[in-house]
């Protein structure tokens, strides 16, 4: 039983990590209609910025906040400079451009910050508590708290504000949004900026928990984040969180209990996703797109 609970906690911690990046993927998809394959590497670069700032003597929290703000501006700039010229192109072209960004940011991080593994100081103490026999890590508590806060703020922004309405409108029908007086370019820049900021926060908090910072730090997380978003539905922030948790827990429990799949544990979470998508192609929480013409 103890083993089960501790594996469950492991799974939840991994799940929250995946969910935090999946949330950025969902945000960019919901506001621009783009699957951003570069999300992980953008977060990697932002995490390097955080690390660099701490190396310059900045306190960790201050470094993270600075990096989040810079990433917001950087994300908006990427939309304006890199994505805008291909905005009207086919989805295939856009996907390839985001894959190009993936490679560019990974290489840029190596050139600028080097390939040595670096250690980011933790933003909070590495404590563990014993709660009714369950080993609770502060990492998990902090990540869950921040993720919950992000979800609430995102929901408020998208569902309860005029800017949020315009963000969703632009993703749904840019031409009609323009005719209603919405500056489509500003909204796309805002969407990219917000997603980059979320990614920066996720990377800066997650990397110190998982590995030393190196150019491959975010790649595994990105794959799982995509899986989480696909499972939950690419247009649902709540789906991203639930999807992340399901993937994380399923993976952790498989590693512990299914010896037959030793080394190929990934089969279970991804098999689960396949099964869900067979019956609900829009994901667990995704809105099924209905359009009469």
């Amino acid at each position: 039983m103890d083993l089960f609970v501790s594996q469950l906690m492991n799974g939840i911690e991994r799940g929250v990590i995946y969910a935090s990046l999946a949330l950025a993927l969902v945000l960019i998809f919901k506001t621009t209609g783009i699957l951003n394959f570069a999300q992980g590497e953008m977060a990697l670069f932002s995490t390097y910025v955080t690390w660099w700032l701490t190396e310059q003597g900045l306190a960790v929290w201050l470094a993270i906040v600075t990096s989040v703000v810079l990433s917001f501006l950087g994300g908006a700039a990427i939309e304006r400079v890199v994505m805008r010229p291909v905005e009207q192109s086919s989805p295939l072209v856009i996907v390839i451009v985001t894959i190009g960004l993936f490679l560019a940011f990974n290489s840029l991080a190596q050139v600028v910050f080097g390939v040595e593994a670096e250690v980011i100081p933790r933003a909070y103490p590495n404590e563990r508590w014993d709660v009714a026999g369950v080993n609770l890590k502060m990492d998990t508590v902090v990540l869950v708290g921040i993720l919950a806060l992000e979800c609430v703020l995102l929901w408020l922004l998208l569902q309860r504000t005029k800017v949020g309405l315009a963000l969703r409108a632009v993703a749904s029908n840019p031409e009609s949004s323009r005719l209603a007086g919405v500056s489509v370019g500003s909204m796309l820049m805002l969407g990219w900026g917000l997603a980059a900021a979320l990614g920066a926060l996720a990377g800066s908090l997650v990397v110190p928990i998982t590995t030393a910072l190196n150019p491959a730090s975010m790649q595994e997380i990105l794959v799982f984040a995509f899986a989480a978003a696909a499972l939950g539905g690419f247009d649902s922030p709540l789906g991203a969180v639930v999807g992340g948790l399901v993937v994380g827990v399923a993976n952790a429990l498989t590693i512990q209990y299914v010896d037959a799949l030793d080394g190929i544990e990934l089969l279970v979470p991804f098999g689960l996703i396949l099964a869900v998508l067979l019956f609900r192609p829009a994901g667990l929480f995704g809105k099924v797109h209905v359009e009469r013409v």
């Binding site: 005029k162 309405l165 749904s172 031409e175 009609s176 949004s177 005719l179 209603a180 247009d235």
Partner: peptide, 26 residues
């Protein structure tokens, strides 16, 4: 000037009420 485009320009994923509120964006 409000332009009702050919094909109606519905914001399909938004609700009816959200469509109307978007109309008042400016």
């Amino acid at each position: 000037i409000a332009h009702v485009p050919q094909g109606r320009g519905t914001l399909a994923e938004l609700t009816v009420e959200e469509n109307l509120r978007l109309g008042a964006f400016a």
